[in-house]
């Protein structure tokens, strides 16, 4: 079973429905015991970094999530759920994250985002990913596939090997992450039609290995 962590942020229903669509058993929960008993965890999230981190703390879910990841079972972060894995963010001041991955979360800035033909912020819409790994859960996607993004900040991991995929928006940024048993995407697989669902399906297969 996959626990979709509910801490009052974001559209959890669509994440759970997408997991069910690919045949996984998903439960939306804010119960630490359920998270501890799950074979897999998905951490969604939209909104501001500081609010999300505050809500995680307030829901007393920070420790259970860290404990879960430490067990080595598959974990998937989506959008802000990717950014929260990092040690620090600079969205509206400096904020501490979960610190699972070394690096930071920074805002799109610089030349391409200034002037007449500037790129828009947020980066909103469908964009492609250059994949640096073919391993699960990113084994059924190609560089031609589009995924749905909506964000103004992106992650900069210190360890470049953690970059499972990168996307071009005024320069390359890390749009998919793979670090031990932790997987995460800046885009929304649950909103990216069949290609997005293929990632969740592959993740669910990883989880199945722990369920049996």
């Amino acid at each position: 079973m996959i626990a979709v962590v509910d801490y009052g942020m974001g559209n959890l229903r669509s994440v759970a429905k997408a997991l069910e669509k690919v045949g996984a058993e998903a439960v939306v929960t804010s119960d630490a015991a359920v998270i501890a008993d799950s074979a897999g965890v998905v951490l969604p999230g939209v909104g501001a970094f500081a609010d999300c981190m505050k809500n995680l703390d307030r829901s007393r879910l920070t420790r259970p999530i860290l404990d879960f990841i430490a067990t080595g079972r598959p974990f998937f972060g989506i959008c802000l759920g990717l950014q929260l894995l990092f040690a620090e963010s600079f969205e509206f001041g400096r904020h501490e994250g979960l610190g699972i991955v070394k690096g930071s979360v920074v805002r799109f800035s610089g030349g391409p985002f200034e002037g007449k033909d500037r790129l828009k912020i947020p980066h909103m819409g469908w964009n492609r990913v250059t994949w640096h790994t073919r391993e699960a859960p990113f084994d059924a996607v190609s560089d031609d596939d589009y995924f749905y993004f909506v964000h103004s900040f992106y992650v900069v991991p210190e360890n470049r090997d953690a970059a499972a995929g990168t996307t071009d928006y005024g320069g390359q940024f890390v749009s998919a992450l793979r670090y031990k048993n932790v997987f995460a995407t800046q885009f929304h697989p649950e909103k990216s039609q069949e290609k997005g669902l293929s990632i969740l399906k592959s993740f669910a297969a990883l989880v199945d290995q722990w369920d049996s």
């Binding site: 669509s14 429905k17 909103k191 990216s192």
Partner: peptide, 8 residues
Amino acid sequence: TAEEIFMP
């Protein structure tokens, strides 16, 4: 709708 379609 959210049960059937997986786009924004």
